[in-house]
Amino acid sequence: MKLTLRVWRQKNAGAEGAMSTYEVDGIAKDMSFLEMLDTLNESLILSGEDPVAFDHDCREGICGACSLVINGEAHGPERTTTCQLHMRSFSDGDTIDIEPWRASAFPVVKDLVVDRSAFDRIIESGGYITAPTGSAPEAHATAVPKPAADFAFEHAECIGCGACVAACPNGSAMLFTSAKVNHLNVLPQGAPERGSRVLDMVGQMDSEGFGGCTLAGECATACPKGIPLFSITRMNREFVRAARKRG
């Protein structure tokens, strides 16, 4: 396949960026999208140009590092991570636009790489259960109903990639935040910190400069792990409950 790529190039956080056009040839249908970019980079290096910087690591769809907006869609046309997107989703002669996640809370580091440390700070503000090592009771001391365990798992699947923020017209981090709140709040182990967790995490989310939720639903459509939009609904309920009790 022969493709035309229009890629966002930006030297560093402070520099101006622009879309640059590249031609790539000899792209196999079985290549992953990132392997296609590897091919581009190999040729850029040999021609003495700066290769395109992009985040990637496990290439198995689980680490959450990869983060490209492809033709206007976070992680591209399939509902998966960029690393699991294959070139068979495109046709010979296509022009593909590749851009970084866009949100003021995710400043561009270089080219397609953004700084997602705001997510880490949201987790730091309360996305945990206080259980210092050694303090744990026997694992079977508390039974967890299977539906609650499954619900917790469904939300714990979030890989923290940030596609929800990238897709949201408001750059909102509600889906990410709610996934963690719901994972922990539904479990009996998470109950003691249930109120403070949601208040603190929402507070941190707001202070990072993410937008608010207008329930456009783009986040859940883009989420490669299928975190449902109702995750947000449920966090809203937790929030009002906690606000009433003030923590």
Partner: peptide, 14 residues
């Protein structure tokens, strides 16, 4: 296992 359950790791359950 005790430690991870206390942290909220959602292991499969019966």
């Amino acid at each position: 296992i005790d430690q991870c359950v206390a942290q909220g790791v959602p292991f499969a359950r019966e």
